[in-house]
Simulated assay, not measured.
Amino acid sequence: MKLDRNTKVVLYLVGALVFMGGLAYASVPLYRAFCNATGFNGTARKAKATLANIHGDSQAIVRVRFDTNTRNVPWTFKSEKAYMDTRVGKTALVWFDVRNNADHPVTARATYNVLPDTMGAYFMKTQCFCFNDVTLQPGESQRFPVVYFLDPKLMTNPDTDTVEDVTLSYTFFESKQLQNVAKTGS
């Protein structure tokens, strides 16, 4: 069957439209995966192990500040310390306190970011409450550890080797995934 020129143009346009729609649909998870893998845009990376021991350490100290926020989540959320002076290449531990002020259970997930953005690739977390959803019952309080290290490779990058101050910022959002499950009952 031979297609006329107009039909071919229409088919090419429909194909391009479907391709662009699929690309737009996949762009958010692809971007998130890219940021998690590379530390792009200040995204702290999840370390499989304490890689600091492999790369060695440094005498450099970087002040890591902790910023805590909630977005429409009825929780009190704060870090144990406002900041920690962290030795590059050494594992550090900081605690975060969370309390549900609502009269019903609330499930939320924390998003995180590192500023300046260039430090995201070197801020490695081995344990963090931000890797999973968190459910707190009414009035419940919990304490969450974050174990992290600053990869010594940051000392070889001219964009990061003189950074003295980093901010690790968390924001809790209600978990849409679990809200949808609760609504549908499945």
Rank of each mutant, 00 (worst) to 15 (best):
E80T: 05
K81H: 13
K81R: 14
K81F: 13
A82F: 10
Y83F: 15
Y83T: 07
Y83R: 03
Y83E: 10
M84K: 14
M84V: 15
D85V: 14
D85C: 14
D85P: 10
D85R: 09
T86A: 15
R87Q: 15
R87N: 09
V88A: 06
V88W: 00
V88E: 03
V88S: 06
G89E: 05
G89I: 04
G89W: 01
T91P: 09
T91K: 11
A92N: 15
L93R: 14
V94H: 08
V94N: 08
V94M: 10
V94T: 14
W95T: 12
W95E: 13
W95I: 11
W95D: 06
W95N: 13
W95Y: 11
F96N: 01
V98M: 13
V98P: 01
V98F: 02
V98N: 01
R99C: 09
R99T: 14
R99E: 12
R99H: 04
R99L: 08
R99Y: 06
N100W: 01
N100R: 05
N100T: 04
N101F: 06
A102P: 02
A102I: 07
A102H: 09
D103M: 08
D103V: 09
H104C: 04
H104S: 13
V106W: 00
V106Y: 00
V106S: 03
T107P: 04
T107F: 01
T107K: 08
T107N: 07
T107H: 05
T107V: 11
A108R: 01
A108K: 00
R109Y: 09
R109F: 06
A110P: 00
A110W: 00
A110H: 01
T111M: 08
Y112G: 03
N113H: 09
V114D: 03
L115R: 13
L115D: 11
L115H: 11
L115I: 13
L115K: 01
L115F: 11
P116N: 07
P116K: 15
D117N: 14
D117T: 00
D117F: 10
D117V: 08
D117R: 08
T118K: 15
M119A: 12
M119K: 01
M119L: 14
G120N: 09
G120V: 05
G120M: 03
A121L: 00
Y122S: 09
Y122F: 15
Y122I: 07
Y122P: 02
F123E: 03
M124D: 05
M124N: 03
K125A: 05
K125M: 11
T126K: 03
T126L: 07
T126N: 10
Q127N: 11
Q127S: 10
Q127K: 13
Q127D: 07
Q127I: 03
C128N: 06
C128K: 01
C128Q: 04
F129A: 06
F129G: 03
C130V: 02
C130T: 04
C130Q: 02
C130P: 02
C130F: 06
F131M: 11
F131G: 04
N132C: 14
N132A: 13
N132T: 04
N132P: 06
V134G: 00
V134R: 04
V134S: 07
